[in-house]
Computed example of a mutant assay.
Amino acid sequence: MPRRPISPQLLARQALALLIGYASARVALWLYLPLPWMLGPMFGCTVAALAGAPISGPNQLRMIVIPIIGVLLGSAITLPVLLSMPGWWPAFLVLAPFLLAALAGSYVVFRRLGGFDRSTAFFSAMPGGLNDAMLLGAAAGGDERRIALAHATRILVVVFLIPLFFSLVYGATGSAGGGNPARNVALSALSLSDWAILTAAAALGYWGGKKLDLPAYAVMGPMIVSGAAHVAGIVHVAPPTQLVNLAQLVIGVVIGCRFLGTTFREVSREMAVAGASAAVMIVIALAFAVPVAAIMQMPATQAFLAFSPGGLAEMSLLALSMGEDLAFVSVMHLTRIALVVAMARPIWRWVARRGEKDGA
């Protein structure tokens, strides 16, 4: 069935959102904020959405630029990285217990503090998998709008607070340009063959990931193809920094526009509950990350990013901005999303059965 063309009115609202996002990014650059090309648009469009501005998220554009992040993550996978992956076993070993702890802690917040019903609280508390949480939650009788708002708030809070946490606690800052200066890649640095290979990695990875129904397929598919190309030595460069910044801009705008149709007065309490849930997840992530960092003899900031409950693209971009090991952080988050999606159904069935026994 052919898609309906986008109306001029919708295009105008999306253009305004992108304009607000760009202006917010310039302000964030001027203020030397970490990850300015994503945090600036995210904050600016969140304020605009809650204020009732006539904007709309460029979701179609997001699906076009998000494979750029996958190709970027794949560029960090080299043969030495592959050979070092068996040494990551301590982090992989505690990932499932961390997810269970984060889910349980967040669930208690939504049930006790927020007063959410059982299914809405459970799928709002999932530490990842926004689309899957909405679909599974709606099928289980949960409030889809509340679930979406909870996950949008989680990502907003995690992505906004973690750079501030790094700055205050660890004294770490991202570059003003939104990425590690050592990894900045100019447009002129790519040859025609580089452009062709990276473009093919994005297109083939996106198509293959969707066909195989991979979790976060728009990122994971291009990452796998790009990683294979870089390990094989077919290509040696990452996507240009300008394109990465564009992808960050679009991602930030889309996150902010998820609050459309609401006002701060209407959702302030639910956002506060979701923010408390995100804070609980961050504390639990820190509790797991510190011993893992000690065992693996890596910086605590790197382990913390790997366990932080944000989105895959967002947390990987934070790793890039903070100069941490991009391959380790992105692989950990891919594994997290896959585990969350795989664990959600059986754990929910157990929770539902317990609820029936308790007469709930």
Rank of each mutant, 00 (worst) to 15 (best):
N59C: 01
L61K: 00
I64V: 13
I66K: 02
I66H: 00
I69R: 00
V71C: 09
V71T: 12
A76C: 06
A76N: 08
I77T: 06
T78Y: 09
T78S: 14
P80Q: 00
V81T: 06
L82F: 07
L83S: 12
L83Y: 12
L83Q: 14
L83D: 14
S84P: 13
G87N: 10
A91M: 05
A91C: 04
F92W: 13
F92P: 05
V94D: 02
V94K: 01
V94Q: 01
V94I: 06
A96C: 15
P97S: 00
F98C: 12
A104P: 02
S106T: 14
V108M: 06
F110T: 05
F110N: 03
R111H: 08
R111M: 07
R111G: 03
L113M: 12
G114N: 09
G115C: 09
D117F: 02
D117K: 01
R118T: 13
R118I: 13
R118F: 06
S119Q: 09
S119D: 08
S119G: 03
T120G: 04
A121N: 03
A121Q: 07
S124H: 03
S124Y: 05
M126P: 12
P127V: 04
G128H: 11
G129H: 06
L130Y: 10
L130E: 09
A133G: 11
G137C: 02
A138H: 15
A138E: 15
A139M: 15
A139N: 15
A140Y: 14
G141F: 13
D143I: 04
R145L: 03
A148R: 04
A148G: 10
L149W: 10
H151R: 02
A152N: 09
A152E: 08
T153M: 06
R154Q: 10
R154F: 06
V158M: 00
F160T: 11
L161R: 03
P163I: 01
P163A: 00
F165D: 04
F165R: 01
S167Y: 12
L168M: 07
L168D: 02
V169C: 06
V169S: 06
Y170D: 15
G171S: 14
A172P: 00
T173P: 12
T173H: 15
S175C: 11
G177R: 06
G177P: 11
G178H: 07
G178K: 03
N180S: 07
A182F: 13
A182C: 08
R183S: 14
R183T: 14
